[in-house]
Amino acid sequence: GIPHFYRQFGYEYTLPLGPTVLLPPEQVPEPLEGEEQPGIRPAQPEDRVRLLTLMAAANQGLAISYLREPAAWAHQDDPLRQDDEAIITLVVMEGRQVAGYFRLFRHESHAMPGVTIVEASPLSHHAALAALRYAKQVSTARRIGHGIRLALPISHPLARLALYLGGRSLDPYAWLVRIPDPVRFLGAIAPALEARLENSFLAGFDSFLRLDLYTQTLELRFQAGRLAGVRNLGCLESQAARLPWWAAWQLWLGCRSRAELTAWYPDARISERLQPLVDTLFPKRPSWIWPTL
């Protein structure tokens, strides 16, 4: 997309996008003499069920994630594709079992130079090293000097290993998101809000929270820890919890914490008595959208 352009239509940057780590290939250690290496091979159609299970494991702990349909996976891995979004999925074998997978863009592009790992399941240290060594081999074969890029959550074991090996942390771009109906959105995430309350010292919360977005005020009413309803109160002023709409979206989606938003922007204010409730309902959490095209 065009940087900044879509913000004029009410979109806001909220979810990370793009590479998070750049690793020089020479930083990837070669295996020790006699060290047994996990097998790596291209994924086959019969691996698809196992891959979907591993993808679900990769999404664990993410606030916002993407579940891919088998047909979309087949389209992405189509060997006849020659566009910049064409992907190859590689499985890591431990014995005869598929222990994990990682995915590379088939071709280098101007937008994503170098060898790019665009997705990976959770991998053991041994398997993660094998994946990085494979990427190193691809980089050497292509004579690419742009390094190995990891477009993964910074919390991913593969990204963390790359940092320990001397990789450099990058500032990712972001997905632009718009929430056209905040009342409907907050109602849709009620199960998550209720679970967060239940697992906190605010279990059984029985009251309401009003969020003044300056353009409208929303009221979340809870009964015995359950979200009983969300109402738009119009332009009713409520000074206890005030956030510009775009800051509220970042809070709701876990992009930034309440403390970060209030420290960063003067018009974001949450009274001390409501801070524990807001922090419980809307904690900062990592999100990631795997390739979708």
Rank of each mutant, 00 (worst) to 15 (best):
1 G>S: 10
3 P>Q: 07
4 H>N: 11
8 Q>I: 12
14 T>K: 01
15 L>P: 10
18 G>H: 12
21 V>K: 00
29 P>L: 10
31 P>L: 10
41 R>G: 02
42 P>E: 06
45 P>E: 11
46 E>I: 01
51 L>W: 07
51 L>R: 06
52 L>Y: 00
52 L>E: 15
53 T>G: 15
55 M>E: 14
55 M>A: 12
61 G>V: 12
67 L>W: 03
69 E>L: 13
70 P>C: 05
71 A>K: 12
74 A>Y: 06
76 Q>K: 03
83 D>F: 04
84 D>M: 03
89 T>K: 11
91 V>R: 10
92 V>P: 05
92 V>K: 08
96 R>G: 14
100 G>E: 09
102 F>P: 13
106 R>Q: 14
107 H>E: 09
108 E>F: 03
109 S>P: 09
109 S>L: 13
110 H>L: 15
110 H>K: 15
111 A>F: 06
111 A>C: 04
118 V>Q: 07
118 V>H: 03
123 L>H: 03
126 H>M: 05
129 L>P: 03
130 A>T: 10
135 A>Q: 03
139 S>Q: 07
142 R>N: 11
143 R>G: 09
146 H>P: 00
149 R>E: 08
151 A>E: 11
155 S>L: 05
160 R>D: 13
167 G>P: 05
170 L>E: 07
172 P>E: 07
172 P>M: 08
175 W>H: 15
179 I>H: 01
182 P>K: 08
187 G>L: 10
187 G>I: 03
191 P>A: 08
191 P>N: 12
192 A>E: 09
193 L>P: 05
195 A>E: 15
196 R>K: 14
198 E>R: 15
201 F>P: 00
202 L>N: 02
206 D>M: 12
208 F>K: 13
213 L>T: 05
214 Y>N: 02
215 T>P: 00
216 Q>P: 00
221 R>M: 08
222 F>E: 02
224 A>D: 15
226 R>S: 09
227 L>S: 05
229 G>E: 05
230 V>F: 06
239 Q>H: 02
243 L>E: 08
245 W>A: 09
251 L>A: 04
257 S>R: 04
261 L>D: 07
262 T>S: 12
264 W>H: 14
273 R>G: 03
284 K>A: 15
285 R>S: 14
286 P>G: 14
286 P>L: 06
288 W>S: 04
